[in-house]
């Protein structure tokens, strides 16, 4: 029996721009994945609780407000702390080039900026999903 990749798409913080998150969610569905969407305004704790209950393989974070250095890292650290180190974390939004190395070091393995093709994200997830 085929194993489906389960992905949680979450929007941390107060940013309401969900066009990208929804486009990516659809593209992942069209690539055969099961995508759980959390909706807007999630705290790191809510995202982690959802990731546990939904037993997802991937957490995708979307943020366009510029608060990624705080909020993405909050999520990544809390996931480590709660023993979800084997869940792949990816992020997208308006992320300046200079911020990417730090984000990767913190465990956000893929960072996708504006103009990224959905295929790139799909391939990245398929290649890097650990479970």
């Amino acid at each position: 029996m085929e194993r489906k990749i389960r992905v949680l798409i979450a929007k941390p913080g107060l940013d309401g721009h969900d066009r990208g998150a929804k486009v990516v969610a659809r593209a992942l569905r069209d690539a055969g994945m099961e995508v759980v969407y959390t909706g807007l305004h999630q705290t790191a704790e809510m995202i982690i609780e959802a990731a546990i209950q939904e037993d997802v393989d991937v957490v995708g974070l979307s943020l366009l407000s510029g608060a990624h250095m705080t909020l993405f890292i909050d999520v990544a650290r809390l996931m480590q702390e709660k023993g979800l180190g084997d869940v792949l974390i990816v992020g997208g939004g308006i992320v300046p080039e200079g911020d990417i190395p730090k984000l990767k070091k913190e465990g956000i393995k893929g960072v996708f900026g504006p103009g990224t093709h959905c295929d790139v994200i799909v391939d990245f997830i398929k290649k890097n999903v650990k479970r």
């Binding site: 085929e2 489906k4 969610a25 659809r26 992942l28 569905r29 069209d30 690539a31 055969g32 994945m33 099961e34 995508v35 759980v36 969407y37 959390t38 909706g39 999630q42 704790e45 809510m46 609780e49 959802a50 209950q53 939904e54």
Partner: peptide, 22 residues
């Protein structure tokens, strides 16, 4: 519902229940 074409699914009901999850 699961998409009959891709086998994927968008699971969006959780949105309204997020506050319960804590």
């Amino acid at each position: 519902p699961t998409s009959p074409f891709s086998g994927g699914a968008l699971l969006g009901d959780r949105v309204r229940m997020m506050e319960l999850a804590m």
